[in-house]
């Protein structure tokens, strides 16, 4: 399936990825090739076949709601580009 550059730009926006023109073209070719390849799955009869979400047989794993030591706030914020007084700092969200 051939995707247009506009469709790729829309997917980039959904993915929150800034793309330049060359990357948009490369991605368009890649996505189109992949989608073509996926067409062959359409021929597989999956009527009444349940989906496999993950391969283990574990179900509804719960754990006790116990308080345990966690990472220090200082350690965590060491990786933050910008933080202030125990908060991650971002650009203005609401004017």
């Amino acid at each position: 399936m051939k995707l247009s550059s506009e469709q790729v730009a829309a997917i980039a926006t959904l993915s929150r990825i800034n793309l330049d023109k060359a990357e948009t073209e490369k991605t368009r070719a890649y996505l189109s090739e992949m989608l073509d390849s996926f067409e062959k799955l359409e021929a597989v009869n999956t009527n009444g076949i349940p989906p496999t979400i993950q391969p283990s047989t574990l179900m509804d794993v719960l754990k006790e709601d116990a308080i345990k030591p966690s990472m220090s706030q200082e350690d965590v914020f060491n990786n933050a580009p910008k933080s202030d007084n125990g908060y991650f700092k971002v650009k203005v969200v609401l004017e």
Binding site: I11, S15, N18, T27, Y30, L31, M34
Partner: peptide, 17 residues
């Protein structure tokens, strides 16, 4: 995301999206 990820990673994220 555009500058931090390499091209392969970006393409796979967009494919998945």
């Amino acid at each position: 995301r555009g500058m931090g990820f390499g091209s392969e990673v970006k393409m796979r994220i967009m494919l998945g999206t």
